[in-house]
């Protein structure tokens, strides 16, 4: 039984099927890795559930599964992504995120050192965002049945009184604000894909936005109609979703949309439109015109919204089209993405 008393070999060990089978190996993995990293009173009780008392008022809950290749990319890894992404989904309701759960599906053979780096990144991201990971689950599947590790996180938060942000509340005349540069995450991840590696200094923008949201809510309150983080599908998908839900049109100005020169150049090289490239630390807010400047100023004063800009306006449009005035002064549609964005050939 001696072997079982040894600590996890975090240097060169690998995840084995036994780490998910409910026995001593699993207890060790959970104790030495997850509990050690996420350390909080609720989790350490070792219950199958977390208990917390609720305040009066509205609560929000959101869940998301995280799958990314490669697991590690410039500016982050799947761990911080899984925390920040769900924190942001909760925060987009104007809420203060408080608790998270995390479920792991791990592929047999994943180096324990990688798992530790991922778990540490989650713990760090949770600390930065001020949330606690209070319950979780671990499964190990045979090699080939998963891609390294899949993480699902669920977040719960409370909404300040008087806020009812919702995607159907945009009205003609409202202002569209974007919190910063687009495309950083998608290009950072793509730059490390097999077959596609190109040199770039671009790092993912993976970041929790609850601090920024709190500052915006303080400045704009209920004049903020809706917020959404443009992740998969990029800014274009988010604008189309909002136009559709609110049954309005949106017109954006190409010249107003912040983008890093390196991201623009990489998109050019790959034949991608940055409007469709993923972000993980940006938000779009639609705000009533009278509070737009105040919300914008509050955003620019926060480090997560330094490059925030007014990028467009909500207009009446029976077709719910998103249109863009190009840098040339011409017009174009910003349509839903059809299929995947695949690099083009010539």
């Amino acid at each position: 039984m001696k072997a079982n008393n040894r600590k996890l070999d975090l240097k060169s060990g690998r995840v084995e099927l036994s780490h998910g089978s409910g026995g001593r190996a699993m207890a060790k993995l959970v104790g030495e890795l997850f509990h050690a990293a996420f350390a909080n009173a609720e989790l350490l009780k070792g219950n199958d559930q977390a208990a917390f008392s609720v305040e009066a008022g509205r609560m929000v809950m959101s869940t998301d599964g995280y799958v990314v290749t490669p697991l590690f990319f410039p500016g982050g890894n799947i761990g911080d992504l899984a925390v920040n992404g769900t924190v942001n989904d909760v925060a987009m309701a104007g809420a203060t995120p408080l608790w998270l759960s995390a479920a792991f599906v791990i592929e047999e053979g994943l180096p324990l050192a990688d798992l530790k780096a991922i778990v540490d990144a989650m713990a760090e991201a949770a600390r930065t965002a001020g949330v606690a990971i209070v319950t979780g689950d671990t499964k190990v599947v045979e090699r080939g049945k998963a891609d390294g590790v899949f993480i699902t996180t669920t977040g719960v938060g409370v909404v300040p009184d008087g806020l009812a942000l919702s995607a159907d509340r945009a009205r003609p005349g409202d202002v569209v604000i974007l919190s910063g540069t687009i495309g950083d995450h998608g290009i950072a991840v793509m730059s490390k894909r097999e077959n596609l590696s190109f040199e770039t200094a671009i790092v993912s923008d993976s970041m929790a936005l609850n601090g920024l949201v709190a500052a915006m809510v303080a400045a704009g309150g209920d004049a903020i109609r809706v917020m959404r983080d443009p992740t998969r599908g990029g800014l274009a998908a988010t604008l189309n979703e909002l136009a559709e839900s609110s049954r309005v049109g949106i017109v954006v100005e190409e010249e107003a949309i912040p983008i890093r020169a390196e991201v623009a150049a990489a998109c050019e090289l790959l034949g991608l439109d940055p409007l469709y490239v993923a972000n993980e630390g940006k938000l779009v807010a639609i705000v009533a015109p009278d509070k737009a400047e105040a919300v914008l100023a509050a955003m620019q004063a926060d480090s997560a919204g330094r490059d925030a800009a007014i990028v467009g306006r909500v207009v009446e449009d029976d077709h719910h089209f998103v249109q863009m005035t190009t840098a040339f002064g011409g017009g174009r549609m910003v349509d839903w993405l059809s299929g995947d964005q695949l690099p083009r050939i010539c």
Binding site: M324, T326, F328, G329, G330, R332
Partner: peptide, 9 residues
């Protein structure tokens, strides 16, 4: 031409 709305110009 389409992407930059050149027809409008």
């Amino acid at each position: 031409i389409s992407r930059y709305g050149i027809e409008d110009l």
